[in-house]
Design a protein around this nucleic acid. Sequence first.
DNA 1: AGTCTTTTTTAACATTTGTAAAAGGAATCT
DNA 2: AGATTCCTTTTACAAATGTTAAAAAAGACT
Lengths: 191, 191
Amino acid sequence: MNSESNSLFDYFSQFQKLNPKAEEAISEICSDVHVPKNRDLQPIGHTCRTIYFVKKGLCRTYYYKDGLDITESFAFENSLIARVESLFTGIPSKKGIQTLENSEFIGISSPALFDLYDQFPEIERLFRKIFEAAYVDTVNRIESIQFHTAEERYKDLIRNSPDLLQRVPLKHIASYLGITQVSLSRIRAKY
Amino acid sequence: MNSESNSLFDYFSQFQKLNPKAEEAISEICSDVHVPKNRDLQPIGHTCRTIYFVKKGLCRTYYYKDGLDITESFAFENSLIARVESLFTGIPSKKGIQTLENSEFIGISSPALFDLYDQFPEIERLFRKIFEAAYVDTVNRIESIQFHTAEERYKDLIRNSPDLLQRVPLKHIASYLGITQVSLSRIRAKY
DNA sequence: AGTCTTTTTTAACATTTGTAAAAGGAATCT
DNA sequence: AGATTCCTTTTACAAATGTTAAAAAAGACT
Protein backbone atom coordinates (compact mmCIF):
# COMPACT_ATOMS: atom_id res chain seq x y z
CA MET A 1 0.00 0.00 0.00
CA ASN A 2 1.48 3.35 -0.92
CA SER A 3 2.08 6.15 1.49
CA GLU A 4 -0.75 8.52 0.55
CA SER A 5 -3.42 5.97 1.44
CA ASN A 6 -4.24 7.55 4.74
CA SER A 7 -7.84 7.78 3.66
CA LEU A 8 -8.19 4.19 4.89
CA PHE A 9 -7.01 5.00 8.39
CA ASP A 10 -9.05 8.18 8.43
CA TYR A 11 -12.03 5.97 7.68
CA PHE A 12 -11.07 3.52 10.43
CA SER A 13 -10.68 6.28 12.98
CA GLN A 14 -14.42 6.96 12.96
CA PHE A 15 -14.84 3.53 14.50
CA GLN A 16 -11.78 2.85 16.62
CA LYS A 17 -8.46 4.53 17.35
CA LEU A 18 -5.51 2.35 16.44
CA ASN A 19 -1.98 2.64 17.76
CA PRO A 20 0.84 2.83 15.22
CA LYS A 21 1.79 -0.82 15.57
CA ALA A 22 -1.69 -1.92 14.69
CA GLU A 23 -1.80 0.44 11.71
CA GLU A 24 1.54 -0.89 10.60
CA ALA A 25 0.28 -4.46 10.85
CA ILE A 26 -2.79 -3.64 8.77
CA SER A 27 -0.69 -1.79 6.19
CA GLU A 28 1.32 -4.93 5.65
CA ILE A 29 -1.69 -6.96 4.56
CA CYS A 30 -3.06 -4.30 2.23
CA SER A 31 -2.40 -3.87 -1.46
CA ASP A 32 -3.33 -1.25 -4.01
CA VAL A 33 -5.56 -2.38 -6.84
CA HIS A 34 -6.43 -0.35 -9.92
CA VAL A 35 -9.30 -1.58 -12.07
CA PRO A 36 -10.66 0.05 -15.26
CA LYS A 37 -14.35 0.77 -15.75
CA ASN A 38 -16.79 -2.13 -16.14
CA ARG A 39 -14.41 -4.86 -15.06
CA ASP A 40 -14.77 -7.49 -12.38
CA LEU A 41 -12.79 -6.71 -9.27
CA GLN A 42 -13.93 -10.08 -7.95
CA PRO A 43 -15.68 -12.68 -10.10
CA ILE A 44 -18.78 -14.64 -9.15
CA GLY A 45 -18.15 -18.06 -7.65
CA HIS A 46 -15.06 -17.51 -5.53
CA THR A 47 -14.90 -17.37 -1.77
CA CYS A 48 -14.51 -13.79 -0.57
CA ARG A 49 -11.02 -13.38 0.87
CA THR A 50 -10.56 -9.65 0.37
CA ILE A 51 -12.24 -6.64 1.90
CA TYR A 52 -11.94 -3.60 -0.36
CA PHE A 53 -11.78 0.04 0.53
CA VAL A 54 -12.82 2.31 -2.33
CA LYS A 55 -10.20 5.03 -2.64
CA LYS A 56 -11.43 6.38 -5.95
CA GLY A 57 -14.25 5.47 -8.28
CA LEU A 58 -17.34 3.39 -7.77
CA CYS A 59 -18.36 -0.24 -7.85
CA ARG A 60 -21.29 -2.54 -7.26
CA THR A 61 -21.92 -6.07 -6.02
CA TYR A 62 -24.11 -8.05 -8.40
CA TYR A 63 -25.40 -11.52 -9.07
CA TYR A 64 -27.62 -13.33 -11.51
CA LYS A 65 -31.18 -14.19 -10.61
CA ASP A 66 -33.02 -16.19 -13.30
CA GLY A 67 -30.47 -15.00 -15.83
CA LEU A 68 -30.95 -11.34 -14.94
CA ASP A 69 -28.17 -9.13 -13.66
CA ILE A 70 -29.15 -7.83 -10.21
CA THR A 71 -27.27 -5.10 -8.34
CA GLU A 72 -27.13 -5.82 -4.63
CA SER A 73 -25.27 -2.71 -3.53
CA PHE A 74 -23.17 0.23 -4.61
CA ALA A 75 -19.95 1.37 -2.96
CA PHE A 76 -18.62 4.89 -3.36
CA GLU A 77 -15.35 6.53 -2.39
CA ASN A 78 -14.43 6.14 1.25
CA SER A 79 -16.41 3.04 1.97
CA LEU A 80 -15.73 -0.64 2.38
CA ILE A 81 -17.14 -3.38 0.22
CA ALA A 82 -17.12 -7.14 0.75
CA ARG A 83 -19.41 -10.08 0.19
CA VAL A 84 -20.09 -10.84 3.80
CA GLU A 85 -22.29 -13.87 3.17
CA SER A 86 -19.10 -15.52 1.86
CA LEU A 87 -16.51 -13.69 4.00
CA PHE A 88 -18.06 -14.92 7.26
CA THR A 89 -19.04 -18.41 6.12
CA GLY A 90 -16.33 -19.49 3.69
CA ILE A 91 -19.05 -20.45 1.21
CA PRO A 92 -18.22 -19.42 -2.39
CA SER A 93 -20.07 -16.23 -3.20
CA LYS A 94 -22.79 -16.12 -5.82
CA LYS A 95 -21.99 -12.43 -6.09
CA GLY A 96 -19.30 -10.52 -7.91
CA ILE A 97 -17.88 -7.02 -7.56
CA GLN A 98 -17.70 -4.88 -10.68
CA THR A 99 -16.39 -1.38 -11.25
CA LEU A 100 -18.66 1.28 -12.72
CA GLU A 101 -15.80 3.74 -13.26
CA ASN A 102 -12.03 3.52 -13.42
CA SER A 103 -11.35 2.84 -9.78
CA GLU A 104 -8.68 2.47 -7.16
CA PHE A 105 -9.05 0.14 -4.21
CA ILE A 106 -7.11 -0.92 -1.17
CA GLY A 107 -7.53 -4.67 -0.80
CA ILE A 108 -7.28 -6.12 2.69
CA SER A 109 -6.60 -9.85 2.85
CA SER A 110 -9.29 -11.26 5.13
CA PRO A 111 -7.45 -14.44 6.24
CA ALA A 112 -4.48 -12.25 7.19
CA LEU A 113 -6.81 -9.79 8.89
CA PHE A 114 -8.51 -12.50 10.95
CA ASP A 115 -5.06 -13.67 12.04
CA LEU A 116 -4.29 -10.17 13.25
CA TYR A 117 -7.34 -10.36 15.53
CA ASP A 118 -5.40 -12.63 17.91
CA GLN A 119 -2.45 -10.30 18.05
CA PHE A 120 -4.32 -6.99 18.12
CA PRO A 121 -7.65 -6.98 20.00
CA GLU A 122 -8.10 -3.38 18.87
CA ILE A 123 -8.17 -4.54 15.24
CA GLU A 124 -10.77 -7.16 16.06
CA ARG A 125 -12.73 -4.43 17.82
CA LEU A 126 -12.39 -2.09 14.84
CA PHE A 127 -13.87 -4.58 12.42
CA ARG A 128 -16.49 -5.68 14.91
CA LYS A 129 -17.71 -2.09 15.00
CA ILE A 130 -17.50 -1.69 11.24
CA PHE A 131 -19.63 -4.75 10.63
CA GLU A 132 -22.05 -3.90 13.41
CA ALA A 133 -22.70 -0.59 11.65
CA ALA A 134 -23.11 -2.38 8.33
CA TYR A 135 -25.51 -4.81 9.99
CA VAL A 136 -27.63 -1.93 11.26
CA ASP A 137 -27.75 -0.45 7.75
CA THR A 138 -28.94 -3.77 6.40
CA VAL A 139 -31.67 -4.10 9.02
CA ASN A 140 -32.89 -0.63 8.13
CA ARG A 141 -32.81 -1.46 4.44
CA ILE A 142 -35.19 -4.36 4.98
CA GLU A 143 -37.75 -1.98 6.42
CA SER A 144 -37.26 0.32 3.45
CA ILE A 145 -37.74 -2.48 0.92
CA GLN A 146 -40.73 -4.02 2.61
CA PHE A 147 -42.76 -0.98 3.49
CA HIS A 148 -41.95 1.74 1.05
CA THR A 149 -43.16 1.83 -2.52
CA ALA A 150 -40.62 1.68 -5.32
CA GLU A 151 -41.24 5.38 -5.88
CA GLU A 152 -40.43 6.26 -2.27
CA ARG A 153 -37.28 4.15 -2.41
CA TYR A 154 -36.18 5.84 -5.62
CA LYS A 155 -36.64 9.28 -4.11
CA ASP A 156 -34.79 8.26 -0.95
CA LEU A 157 -31.96 6.86 -3.00
CA ILE A 158 -31.35 9.97 -5.06
CA ARG A 159 -31.73 12.14 -1.99
CA ASN A 160 -29.08 10.15 -0.14
CA SER A 161 -26.80 9.67 -3.15
CA PRO A 162 -27.49 12.55 -5.52
CA ASP A 163 -24.60 11.75 -7.86
CA LEU A 164 -25.72 8.15 -8.32
CA LEU A 165 -27.86 9.23 -11.30
CA GLN A 166 -24.85 10.85 -12.94
CA ARG A 167 -22.59 7.88 -12.38
CA VAL A 168 -24.67 4.72 -12.65
CA PRO A 169 -26.85 3.37 -15.50
CA LEU A 170 -30.54 3.33 -14.61
CA LYS A 171 -30.78 -0.39 -15.21
CA HIS A 172 -28.52 -1.00 -12.22
CA ILE A 173 -30.51 1.43 -10.11
CA ALA A 174 -33.71 -0.38 -11.09
CA SER A 175 -32.42 -3.80 -10.07
CA TYR A 176 -31.00 -2.34 -6.87
CA LEU A 177 -34.48 -1.02 -6.07
CA GLY A 178 -35.97 -4.42 -6.84
CA ILE A 179 -38.00 -3.26 -9.82
CA THR A 180 -37.76 -3.49 -13.61
CA GLN A 181 -36.25 -0.82 -15.84
CA VAL A 182 -39.71 -0.25 -17.25
CA SER A 183 -41.15 0.40 -13.84
CA LEU A 184 -38.34 2.80 -12.96
CA SER A 185 -38.91 4.66 -16.22
CA ARG A 186 -42.57 5.09 -15.33
CA ILE A 187 -41.65 6.48 -11.92
CA ARG A 188 -39.19 8.91 -13.46
CA ALA A 189 -41.71 10.04 -16.08
CA LYS A 190 -43.87 11.52 -13.34
CA TYR A 191 -41.42 14.38 -12.76
CA MET B 1 -29.60 -16.88 36.35
CA ASN B 2 -30.51 -20.28 37.74
CA SER B 3 -28.34 -23.36 37.46
CA GLU B 4 -30.13 -25.30 34.74
CA SER B 5 -29.69 -22.50 32.21
CA ASN B 6 -26.87 -24.23 30.41
CA SER B 7 -28.84 -23.97 27.20
CA LEU B 8 -27.35 -20.49 26.87
CA PHE B 9 -23.78 -21.70 27.04
CA ASP B 10 -24.59 -24.63 24.78
CA TYR B 11 -25.80 -22.05 22.31
CA PHE B 12 -22.65 -19.95 22.75
CA SER B 13 -20.41 -22.96 22.23
CA GLN B 14 -21.42 -23.19 18.58
CA PHE B 15 -19.67 -19.89 18.08
CA GLN B 16 -16.81 -19.73 20.55
CA LYS B 17 -15.48 -21.84 23.41
CA LEU B 18 -15.37 -19.93 26.66
CA ASN B 19 -13.27 -20.71 29.68
CA PRO B 20 -15.05 -21.02 33.06
CA LYS B 21 -14.07 -17.54 34.20
CA ALA B 22 -15.66 -15.99 31.16
CA GLU B 23 -18.82 -18.06 31.59
CA GLU B 24 -18.92 -17.02 35.21
CA ALA B 25 -18.60 -13.37 34.26
CA ILE B 26 -21.44 -13.64 31.75
CA SER B 27 -23.63 -15.49 34.27
CA GLU B 28 -23.29 -12.56 36.63
CA ILE B 29 -24.84 -10.13 34.18
CA CYS B 30 -27.73 -12.43 33.25
CA SER B 31 -31.15 -12.62 34.78
CA ASP B 32 -34.13 -14.89 34.30
CA VAL B 33 -37.27 -13.30 32.98
CA HIS B 34 -40.67 -14.94 32.75
CA VAL B 35 -43.32 -13.24 30.66
CA PRO B 36 -46.91 -14.42 30.03
CA LYS B 37 -48.35 -14.67 26.54
CA ASN B 38 -49.03 -11.49 24.56
CA ARG B 39 -47.09 -9.15 26.82
CA ASP B 40 -44.32 -6.73 26.02
CA LEU B 41 -40.92 -7.98 27.05
CA GLN B 42 -39.57 -4.61 25.89
CA PRO B 43 -41.77 -1.65 24.99
CA ILE B 44 -41.42 0.54 21.94
CA GLY B 45 -39.44 3.73 22.46
CA HIS B 46 -36.69 2.66 24.83
CA THR B 47 -33.04 2.19 24.00
CA CYS B 48 -32.20 -1.49 23.76
CA ARG B 49 -30.00 -2.43 26.70
CA THR B 50 -30.76 -6.12 26.98
CA ILE B 51 -30.05 -9.03 24.69
CA TYR B 52 -32.47 -11.89 25.30
CA PHE B 53 -31.97 -15.60 24.90
CA VAL B 54 -35.24 -17.49 24.43
CA LYS B 55 -35.19 -20.46 26.79
CA LYS B 56 -38.81 -21.38 26.32
CA GLY B 57 -41.66 -19.95 24.30
CA LEU B 58 -41.69 -17.59 21.39
CA CYS B 59 -41.63 -13.88 20.73
CA ARG B 60 -41.54 -11.31 17.97
CA THR B 61 -40.11 -7.86 17.36
CA TYR B 62 -42.73 -5.46 16.04
CA TYR B 63 -43.31 -1.82 15.26
CA TYR B 64 -46.02 0.44 13.93
CA LYS B 65 -45.96 1.62 10.34
CA ASP B 66 -48.78 4.03 9.44
CA GLY B 67 -50.70 2.77 12.45
CA LEU B 68 -50.37 -0.87 11.43
CA ASP B 69 -48.67 -3.48 13.59
CA ILE B 70 -45.73 -4.93 11.63
CA THR B 71 -43.77 -7.99 12.73
CA GLU B 72 -40.10 -7.61 11.95
CA SER B 73 -38.90 -11.00 13.19
CA PHE B 74 -39.74 -14.06 15.24
CA ALA B 75 -37.48 -15.69 17.82
CA PHE B 76 -37.95 -19.30 18.91
CA GLU B 77 -36.38 -21.38 21.66
CA ASN B 78 -32.59 -21.40 21.63
CA SER B 79 -32.05 -18.17 19.82
CA LEU B 80 -31.11 -14.62 20.68
CA ILE B 81 -33.22 -11.56 20.11
CA ALA B 82 -32.29 -7.90 20.33
CA ARG B 83 -33.09 -4.68 18.52
CA VAL B 84 -29.69 -4.16 17.00
CA GLU B 85 -30.51 -0.86 15.31
CA SER B 86 -30.80 0.51 18.85
CA LEU B 87 -28.30 -1.74 20.65
CA PHE B 88 -25.43 -0.65 18.43
CA THR B 89 -26.38 3.00 18.07
CA GLY B 90 -27.91 3.99 21.40
CA ILE B 91 -30.87 5.45 19.51
CA PRO B 92 -34.24 4.64 21.15
CA SER B 93 -35.83 1.77 19.28
CA LYS B 94 -39.04 2.19 17.35
CA LYS B 95 -39.51 -1.53 17.86
CA GLY B 96 -40.81 -3.59 20.74
CA ILE B 97 -40.49 -7.23 21.73
CA GLN B 98 -43.69 -9.11 22.51
CA THR B 99 -44.31 -12.68 23.62
CA LEU B 100 -46.57 -14.92 21.56
CA GLU B 101 -46.64 -17.65 24.24
CA ASN B 102 -45.84 -17.85 27.93
CA SER B 103 -42.09 -17.54 27.70
CA GLU B 104 -38.86 -17.72 29.64
CA PHE B 105 -35.88 -15.62 28.73
CA ILE B 106 -32.36 -15.02 29.91
CA GLY B 107 -31.71 -11.30 29.75
CA ILE B 108 -28.12 -10.18 29.21
CA SER B 109 -27.38 -6.58 30.14
CA SER B 110 -25.71 -5.07 27.10
CA PRO B 111 -23.84 -2.22 28.85
CA ALA B 112 -22.41 -4.79 31.28
CA LEU B 113 -21.62 -7.12 28.39
CA PHE B 114 -19.78 -4.41 26.47
CA ASP B 115 -17.75 -3.73 29.62
CA LEU B 116 -16.76 -7.39 29.73
CA TYR B 117 -15.31 -7.07 26.24
CA ASP B 118 -12.29 -5.23 27.69
CA GLN B 119 -11.67 -7.88 30.30
CA PHE B 120 -12.41 -10.97 28.18
CA PRO B 121 -11.44 -10.75 24.49
CA GLU B 122 -13.06 -14.17 24.03
CA ILE B 123 -16.43 -12.70 25.01
CA GLU B 124 -16.00 -9.88 22.51
CA ARG B 125 -15.09 -12.52 19.93
CA LEU B 126 -18.15 -14.62 20.82
CA PHE B 127 -20.55 -11.77 20.24
CA ARG B 128 -18.66 -10.62 17.19
CA LYS B 129 -19.29 -14.04 15.66
CA ILE B 130 -22.91 -14.14 16.80
CA PHE B 131 -23.68 -10.82 15.18
CA GLU B 132 -21.68 -11.63 12.06
CA ALA B 133 -23.91 -14.68 11.59
CA ALA B 134 -27.02 -12.59 12.21
CA TYR B 135 -25.74 -10.05 9.68
CA VAL B 136 -25.37 -12.78 7.06
CA ASP B 137 -28.94 -13.93 7.73
CA THR B 138 -30.15 -10.38 7.22
CA VAL B 139 -28.27 -9.98 3.94
CA ASN B 140 -29.82 -13.20 2.70
CA ARG B 141 -33.25 -12.06 3.81
CA ILE B 142 -33.01 -8.98 1.62
CA GLU B 143 -32.52 -11.16 -1.41
CA SER B 144 -35.51 -13.23 -0.38
CA ILE B 145 -37.74 -10.20 0.06
CA GLN B 146 -36.70 -8.47 -3.11
CA PHE B 147 -36.65 -11.33 -5.58
CA HIS B 148 -39.11 -13.92 -4.41
CA THR B 149 -42.86 -13.55 -4.66
CA ALA B 150 -44.91 -13.45 -1.48
CA GLU B 151 -46.04 -16.99 -2.31
CA GLU B 152 -42.45 -18.28 -2.50
CA ARG B 153 -41.57 -16.55 0.75
CA TYR B 154 -44.59 -18.07 2.49
CA LYS B 155 -43.62 -21.55 1.34
CA ASP B 156 -40.01 -21.02 2.39
CA LEU B 157 -41.12 -19.78 5.77
CA ILE B 158 -43.30 -22.76 6.62
CA ARG B 159 -40.68 -25.13 5.26
CA ASN B 160 -38.03 -23.62 7.51
CA SER B 161 -40.30 -23.13 10.53
CA PRO B 162 -43.08 -25.71 10.22
CA ASP B 163 -44.52 -25.04 13.67
CA LEU B 164 -44.85 -21.31 13.03
CA LEU B 165 -48.35 -21.88 11.64
CA GLN B 166 -49.37 -23.68 14.82
CA ARG B 167 -47.93 -21.05 17.11
CA VAL B 168 -48.36 -17.66 15.45
CA PRO B 169 -51.48 -15.83 14.22
CA LEU B 170 -51.54 -15.45 10.45
CA LYS B 171 -51.78 -11.68 10.72
CA HIS B 172 -48.28 -11.59 12.16
CA ILE B 173 -47.01 -13.96 9.47
CA ALA B 174 -48.55 -11.71 6.81
CA SER B 175 -46.87 -8.57 8.10
CA TYR B 176 -43.58 -10.44 8.50
CA LEU B 177 -43.82 -11.42 4.83
CA GLY B 178 -44.57 -7.82 3.91
CA ILE B 179 -48.08 -8.48 2.63
CA THR B 180 -51.63 -7.97 3.89
CA GLN B 181 -53.69 -10.61 5.66
CA VAL B 182 -55.97 -10.66 2.66
CA SER B 183 -53.13 -11.41 0.32
CA LEU B 184 -51.85 -14.18 2.56
CA SER B 185 -55.33 -15.67 2.69
CA ARG B 186 -55.41 -15.73 -1.11
CA ILE B 187 -52.07 -17.52 -1.23
CA ARG B 188 -53.20 -20.09 1.33
CA ALA B 189 -56.48 -20.67 -0.53
CA LYS B 190 -54.54 -22.11 -3.46
CA TYR B 191 -53.71 -25.30 -1.51
C1' DA C 1 -20.68 11.80 -40.35
C1' DG C 2 -22.32 7.24 -40.19
C1' DT C 3 -22.84 2.72 -38.16
C1' DC C 4 -23.38 -0.20 -34.43
C1' DT C 5 -24.46 -1.15 -29.81
C1' DT C 6 -26.35 -0.10 -25.50
C1' DT C 7 -29.53 2.34 -22.71
C1' DT C 8 -33.90 4.37 -21.83
C1' DT C 9 -38.60 5.27 -22.76
C1' DT C 10 -43.19 4.22 -24.31
C1' DA C 11 -47.25 1.35 -25.17
C1' DA C 12 -50.53 -2.45 -24.44
C1' DC C 13 -51.89 -6.01 -21.79
C1' DA C 14 -51.45 -9.48 -17.80
C1' DT C 15 -50.68 -10.43 -13.06
C1' DT C 16 -50.05 -9.45 -8.37
C1' DT C 17 -51.11 -7.12 -4.44
C1' DG C 18 -53.72 -3.52 -1.95
C1' DT C 19 -58.18 -1.55 0.00
C1' DA C 20 -62.58 -1.71 2.03
C1' DA C 21 -66.40 -4.05 3.57
C1' DA C 22 -68.78 -8.04 4.97
C1' DA C 23 -69.29 -12.67 6.53
C1' DG C 24 -67.77 -16.75 8.78
C1' DG C 25 -64.96 -19.08 12.51
C1' DA C 26 -62.52 -19.53 16.61
C1' DA C 27 -61.29 -18.31 21.11
C1' DT C 28 -62.29 -16.13 25.50
C1' DC C 29 -65.07 -14.62 29.29
C1' DT C 30 -68.92 -14.41 32.43
C1' DA D 1 -74.92 -21.39 26.75
C1' DG D 2 -74.55 -16.77 25.29
C1' DA D 3 -72.10 -12.72 24.37
C1' DT D 4 -68.11 -10.61 23.01
C1' DT D 5 -64.01 -10.08 20.82
C1' DC D 6 -60.48 -11.34 17.78
C1' DC D 7 -58.91 -13.81 13.73
C1' DT D 8 -59.44 -15.40 9.03
C1' DT D 9 -61.56 -15.68 4.67
C1' DT D 10 -64.15 -13.97 0.84
C1' DT D 11 -65.69 -10.59 -2.56
C1' DA D 12 -65.36 -6.65 -5.63
C1' DC D 13 -62.79 -3.14 -7.25
C1' DA D 14 -58.42 -0.13 -7.51
C1' DA D 15 -53.55 0.56 -7.93
C1' DA D 16 -48.92 -0.90 -8.70
C1' DT D 17 -45.75 -3.58 -11.02
C1' DG D 18 -44.42 -7.16 -14.44
C1' DT D 19 -43.97 -8.79 -19.39
C1' DT D 20 -43.20 -8.23 -24.08
C1' DA D 21 -42.23 -5.65 -27.94
C1' DA D 22 -41.04 -1.60 -30.31
C1' DA D 23 -39.35 3.04 -30.72
C1' DA D 24 -36.36 6.67 -29.33
C1' DA D 25 -32.16 8.41 -27.38
C1' DA D 26 -27.46 8.20 -26.11
C1' DG D 27 -22.79 6.48 -26.49
C1' DA D 28 -18.94 4.07 -28.69
C1' DC D 29 -16.21 3.12 -32.71
C1' DT D 30 -14.49 3.46 -37.25
